[in-house]
Design a protein around this nucleic acid. Sequence first.
DNA 1: GAGCCGATATTCT
DNA 2: GAATATCGGCTCC
Length: 175
Amino acid sequence: MIPDIPVDEIARRLLGARLRTEIEGTPTEVALTEVEAYGPEDPASHAFRGERNANRSMFKKPGTLYVYRSYGMHWCANVVTGPVGTGEAVLLRAGTPVTGEAAMRRRRGRDDHLCDGPGKLCQALGITGDLDGTSLETGPARLTLAGDIPGKVIATSRIGITKGTDRLWRFVLVQ
DNA sequence: GAGCCGATATTCT
DNA sequence: GAATATCGGCTCC
């Protein structure tokens, strides 16, 4: 499912892809609009200092879902990309609702800003640490790549990091 | 809309 | 004890 190309190129191609979850019988789906790539020898990456308990699934095979807790209270979802053991992943930062918007409102407890941030995206889709390490092909959360990128892509520096800020590996879909 | 700030878990120094 | 791939609520324009 994940092509064998550099992680930043994969990140770019994930824009417009559909991420669908079916949690407790409730289907929800978004189209991705914002992602960030994290590569090997990348000081901003969780994998930079090697494999640990918390980032174990980042080293699994491409197409694995890597979920981690951020700032103690939010979940963030990543798509593992590199071959087994490399620790490459793409952080899914934001999307637009496609199906199950009512369920997203319920989970989020509000009617706006449903999935315009990494933590919010996970909450809207019902993604938690329980899904860490599951397959995006056969698990409760599934990814479908878009044929073409539906719009214009801009690349910027990544958000919320202090190292590796020179890499323009944050990709945002506009229009 | 921009800017501050508190809440909170896990890891590393 | 500090840092961190954040969010939401609150201010003040």
